[in-house]
Design a binder for these strands. Structure first.
Lengths: 169, 169
DNA sequence: ACGCTGACTTTGACATTGGCAAGCCAGGGT
DNA sequence: ACCCTGGCTTGCCAATGTCAAAGTCAGCGT
């Protein structure tokens, strides 16, 4: 029955509800298979519409809809480019906001590697390109300690007053 | 145009497709808003059916369907318990598989905190309960270096032969 | 002027998700 | 014997996600 420790008025679990939960909001933005896979492709270096559709294995309709949404949300920006002898086209470049989702995407991959391949591990491994060491996504404190669920403390970030408002039941 | 470095035959981006991608599989298991929010609640310590429905803010029908799926996938196990004078009931306890999704869920929360609250940050903060230090989800190499997207190297995990089979276009 | 190509858009069909409301069921309490 | 309560299940409906296939459009090369 290991769980995080809830501090302050969060401890009374019946007194509040996570109505402005970042997890829920994040899932509203990237909560589809296609959005996550498009991000994966972008991390692999893909920038062009047709490549996204083809490499992710989704229809152009879905690629179009998702890229439009992700661009509107600011995870990609549409940037004109011109190859000699070609007309101007647009490519989809990751913004910082898009790049900052890397830990979330890699954490999913890491979990899938461990549990969804019959113990054989995933098809692609991650290493630090400078040192060659394996890379992992971890929950760590500022001083570098890895923090397990049971040693995680959750605290209200604002005054109880304001928090009650934004955590209203 | 920063991206990961693709090693070996992965470098020829037109020669393979991530058909057995762990990210896609993981999204098949926990790729719904309700699944992620139920996990969040479990990390907060919730174990009982009604509490999940009420605290997550979903209907009992959705809670029932999702808990059944997540239990079938092995993220929760159904365990009988008995309060005195009550009949035997079941609670949903996180398994290691469920607990191992913590980095993914927290990474989403961290991202949402940064970008989806108008710069004000999220309503709940994370600290190391032992030291009080802030906690973050990070992509790190074995020796503790934080690895940005541009310094991440992706390598095929198996022989080119076998990999081609599992990464078939 | 015309065709080709990359980049979409549209249409139509189907599955999944999620909300609301009502119903069911087992086993204690009375 | 009957009711109550926690824990689901069922039915219905709207919204969203996905696919397949066909259509559109801009502009460069010829």
């Amino acid at each position: 029955m290991e769980a995080a420790r809830l501090e302050g008025f969060l401890a009374d679990r019946d007194a509040w509800r996570a109505t402005h939960c970042s997890i829920g909001r994040a899932m509203g933005v990237v909560g589809t298979r296609s959005a996550m896979l498009i991000l994966r492709e972008a991390y692999y270096g893909t920038t062009r519409f047709d490549d996204f559709a083809e490499r992710v294995g989704i229809t152009e309709a879905v690629a179009s809809a998702r890229l439009k949404e992700l661009t509107a949300e600011g995870l990609f920006e549409r940037s004109p480019y011109k190859e000699p002898g070609q007309r101007t086209r647009y490519e989809y470049l990751l913004t910082e906001k898009g790049r900052d989702l890397l830990p979330a995407v890699l954490a999913l991959m890491q979990w899938g590697d461990k549990y969804l391949h019959g113990g054989r591990g995933g098809p692609i491994g991650m290493r630090d390109d400078l040192t060659g060491e394996p890379v992992r996504v971890e929950v760590r404190s500022a001083s570098g300690r890895e923090v397990p669920l049971g040693e995680l403390r959750l605290t209200p970030n604002v005054s109880e007053e304001a928090a009650r408002r934004s955590l209203r039941r």
